[in-house]
Amino acid sequence: MSTYLIYAVGGALIFSIGTYALLAQRHIMHKVIGANIMGSGIFMVLIALGKRTPDGVTDPVPQAMVLTGIVVTVALTALGLSIAKRYYTLTGLDDLDQDPPACDGR
């Protein structure tokens, strides 16, 4: 079993765990964390990919992709956290599927 394959299978596993968290966890924070875990899974796959070149020279593109992905994930996480905090302050709820007490008309 090659290194790449270990990374790939591991990444897929981590990705699945994150997906489950994003789908099934009710708490907003859990969902945000779940999304981050999904990202980590993919980054693992990508990093391993950089090594898998015919001539053995590291391919820079996947690494650039991972870096970009991390930046994007950070931004998304920040936005998610700020929304979660504000929502909790306004309604006292940490679960999107519950109707907030007062949903005004506008």
């Binding site: 997906t19 994003l22 907003i28 969902k31 945000v32 999304a35 999904m38 998304l76 936005l79 998610g80 929304i83 979660a84 504000r86 929502y87 306004l90 309604t91 999107l96 907030p100 007062a102 949903c103 005004d104 506008r106």
Partner: peptide, 18 residues
């Protein structure tokens, strides 16, 4: 920034993450 908008925004955000 009201509850409804935040809730909708959060759902939108999670959909985006997914």
């Amino acid at each position: 920034g009201d509850a409804r908008a935040l809730r909708a925004g959060a759902r939108y955000l999670f959909a985006n993450m997914l």
